[in-house]
Design a binder for these strands. Structure first.
Lengths: 342, 342
DNA sequence: TTGAAAGCGCTAACAG
DNA sequence: CTGTTAGCGCTTTCAA
């Protein structure tokens, strides 16, 4: 086979099959039109022989879909997002789309650049976890009539205008805390990310509600946050132990990691010396013994919901904006000591 | 601002600036052509006012670049690949490209579908880790003149035709084994993935070479492989201990994870009861104490090399196919006991 | 100093 | 039954 200087076009196929471009288009797209079977076969053969592959860009200029979706996440390396991306990509593939994955790195400026580039590509739809939960880039997509599903980070303004898929952060915090309370703990801390996004605050809200339910007064000393880093977790662990807590809700797995390192370095054993529940299920929770008790956020469901919601929008299914909130579940482990209750 | 039914085009801008589409194109692309500053400003203003964003698809039809690259990896969830993807995406972004990330899931059939879709999108270039190291999909890309860099998985046939970026698996296996030998170990096992790709075999080759160098006869009982799973690692750990090894080279982190669970479940402590080196640096190695000794594969360098190689090709830099092999480095930990040597 | 027009590859209305 | 043609949005040559 000789190498062509440029990719084969519909005209090349037409020439080879001794017919017209229109006919080739009809055949290749299986559109309703009666054609002599012989002609149809000839076209198919010609296309195969020269290795014709349709140019999706040209096709899109006639109002067809581009066949490209995008997912913009805030922390690409975070397993929570990575796993959702894997699922979304796979669902999109089934539906015939390729997915452009982008990382805004929690930076609205970068996100702006990314979104403009996506608009320039005239992608068919976008799943977006807005950096800092800001809405202007989503607005940009909407102005260009690109369907957009907000994932995980709710927008503060005009939330009702967008499809939204997330998990119930309040319930997540509540679930973790309640588990510790039911095990008999009373001096329970919350430690997490001092994030500008509302998610963390909602988890703390759940934590507070659980305490209240059990009639435990909350203490300012028991709620600690830091930047999102192992070092921050390490620091907070020391502080909390000093403050005399018996159990901790780790609001974010990145800081939790640092805290567990602190425990191990100081010979503090779980669940004997300290009890805890980790919100999130990063890979490392699976390699520790005793087993870590975690709260599993509904990653698979969220990914599936976001993908299907977007695909429906892209396929012109008309529906009012949906808001899907999923609940977290507790993955029992051995990092919580059950205290005998008198 | 009223919502337009369709995205603004160059003509809309022209109309608003009371000039022609050609002029708008010249202005917006900063092409060499003298224009009255006043006109230029008018065009810019008009474009901004109606929120014009160039349609890259249309632009590409005039022979311009599409602005899309693709990365096809074999195991999207594997941190080794995930981290490289993050870096590649970020380098590509700097250069003005969006990146379509795809997951072939070790399945050449899926890969075929993906590659055809990418060709259909007329992407500008592709970084490919071929499933099972098969070459036909790379060949497909080449037939469509899409620049292609092979990453991590070397192709058995026609390897010299492609740019290739990888790490030296032989050296990686050698490095790990030598570290154990130098610590005084003599009963050293290799345990890993029973993979169809050559990478694993090369690591075993390095293992063997190191043993030979130290005059240690190799034992068949000391080389174990299994499917890529925690359960496989768990099984192999038991078997190796039974075979009386004092140290293990873990050829793949996924099976290593299972083995470490086995150790913990049985109260086998490292480095006292067993020594090991893990090839790879998944997240979980950072949370274990005593610290795990790992071999760091040159992920960042590989990602950067692959990205830049591809960008050069895309930018029409003409060069003979390059083959870049990077070396791994040892990250010292505390999972290797130093045996006093008489 | 600027505009008109051709044409990239494809689809679909329309005309045989 | 099948082919001709217009036109999607853009770039660039050519003409004015």
């Amino acid at each position: 086979m000789t190498k062509p200087k440029r990719s084969a076009t519909i005209k090349d196929v037409a020439a080879r099959a001794r017919t017209s471009a229109a006919t080739v288009s009809y055949v290749l797209n299986n559109r309703e039109r009666y054609l002599r079977p012989e002609l149809r076969a000839r076209v198919l053969r010609a296309a195969a022989e020269i290795g014709y592959v349709k140019n999706a860009a040209a096709s899109s200029m006639k109002g067809k879909r581009r066949g490209i979706l995008a997912v913009v996440v805030a922390q690409f390396g975070n397993t929570f997002f990575t796993r959702m991306c894997v699922d979304i990509v796979s669902i999109a593939r089934e539906a015939g789309f390729v997915v452009s994955l982008c990382n805004n790195d929690e930076d609205p400026g970068q996100e702006r650049v990314i979104v403009e580039r996506l608009i320039s590509q005239r992608i068919d739809g976008c799943i977006l976890s807005p950096a800092l939960s800001l809405g202007e880039n989503a607005e940009l997509l909407r102005r260009h009539r690109i369907p957009c599903v907000i994932l995980e980070r709710a927008l503060p303004d005009t939330p009702e205008a967008y499809d939204f898929v997330g998990h119930d952060n309040f319930q997540t915090g509540y679930l973790a805390t309640r588990h510790l309370l039911e095990a008999g703990h009373r001096r329970i801390a919350f430690s997490g990310w001092n994030s500008p996004i509302p998610n963390v605050g909602e988890r703390v809200g759940g934590y507070r509600a659980a305490l209240r339910e059990f009639g435990i007064p909350e203490s300012r000393q028991f709620i600690l946050t830091s930047e999102l880093s192992e070092a921050g977790g390490y620091r907070m662990a020391g502080q909390l132990l000093q403050n005399g807590v018996s159990a901790i809700v780790f609001g974010h797995h990145d800081t939790a990691k640092g805290s567990l390192l602190y425990f191990q370095d100081r010979g503090i054993r779980w669940p004997d010396d300290i009890s805890f529940v980790v919100i999130g299920t990063p890979e490392w929770t699976g390699v520790l013994r005793p087993r870590v008790t975690c709260v599993l956020r509904p990653e698979r469901e969220m990914a599936a919901a976001a993908a299907h919601l977007l695909l429906n929008r892209v396929m012109d299914v008309d529906a009012p904006p949906a808001r899907k909130l999923f609940e977290s579940t507790l993955l029992d482990g051995d990092s919580v000591r059950v205290i005998a209750i008198s």
